[in-house]
Simulated assay, not measured.
Amino acid sequence: MNKIYLIFFLSLISFCSYSQESKEIQKLEIELQKCLDDTQNNMLNCTIEYYNKIDKQLNITYNKIRPTLSKSEQEQLKSKQLAWLKKRDQYFKKVEVETAKELDGENSSQDYRMICSHENALFVRDRIIELEKIYSKN
């Protein structure tokens, strides 16, 4: 029963998208859903792969935006990104604690790792969307 709930939860989150999403993010979310739908796949591996791809996409987006900016804008972007990285690390720790609490203290199961990976990926995805929205004019 728990696995069915998790599948439904992850599917629901995966399809809650923003209109500002880039085609690359949409592509990654479709890949994730296909991976999760394939009963031969391990759902944990699907979410870890999604996180790795979305994290890589953040770096691609950042490096795509940076050269289009003036030197002072580049410094502002760097400063904002460093602040976001600190916020990200705090958020990831919070997700770990809250997820363990929801799973009655369990923090080594596949379900725990899958939920944390997916929540972390969504946080990174939202940063990509935010960067694209802010700097799309440039």
Rank of each mutant, 00 (worst) to 15 (best):
E75N: 15
I115N: 02
T68S: 11
K53S: 04
I129H: 00
Q33V: 06
I13H: 03
E132N: 04
S22F: 00
C46Y: 00
R66C: 11
Y135G: 03
K56M: 10
Y5M: 08
C16E: 10
Y5T: 10
N42A: 01
K86M: 07
E75W: 15
F92S: 10
F15P: 03
M43I: 15
L10N: 00
S117M: 03
K133L: 13
Q76K: 14
I115A: 02
D37A: 13
Y91Q: 15
R127G: 05
N45S: 05
L77M: 08
N42F: 00
N59Q: 11
T39V: 11
S70L: 08
Q74D: 07
L131V: 04
I48P: 02
N107R: 13
L82D: 14
I48D: 05
E49N: 02
K137V: 12
E102G: 08
L85F: 11
E24W: 01
Y5K: 09
S72K: 12
T47L: 01
K23T: 10
E21Y: 03
I60A: 09
K133F: 09
K56C: 06
I60R: 07
K34C: 05
E96K: 11
V95N: 04
T99G: 03
I65P: 01
I13S: 07
E29S: 06
L28N: 03
Q20N: 13
N52D: 09
Y50T: 00
L85Q: 11
K64I: 14
H118Y: 13
S79Y: 15
Q76I: 12
Y5G: 06
S108V: 14
T39Q: 09
L32V: 02
C16V: 13
T68I: 07
C116T: 11
W84M: 06
N59V: 07
I25F: 00
S108H: 14
M114V: 07
I65W: 01
Q81L: 03
Q26T: 13
K86N: 10
V95W: 03
T61S: 14
C35N: 00
I4Q: 11
A100S: 10
P67S: 04
K23G: 09
W84E: 04
E98M: 02
N138Y: 11
R88S: 12
T47I: 01
D126W: 05
D37F: 14
C16A: 13
I54G: 00
L85Y: 12
L82W: 07
E130Q: 12
K27D: 08
E132I: 02
S109M: 01
R127L: 04
N59E: 12
E119T: 06
K93Y: 13
K34Y: 09
E31K: 08
K27G: 06
T99C: 04
Q20A: 14
K64G: 15
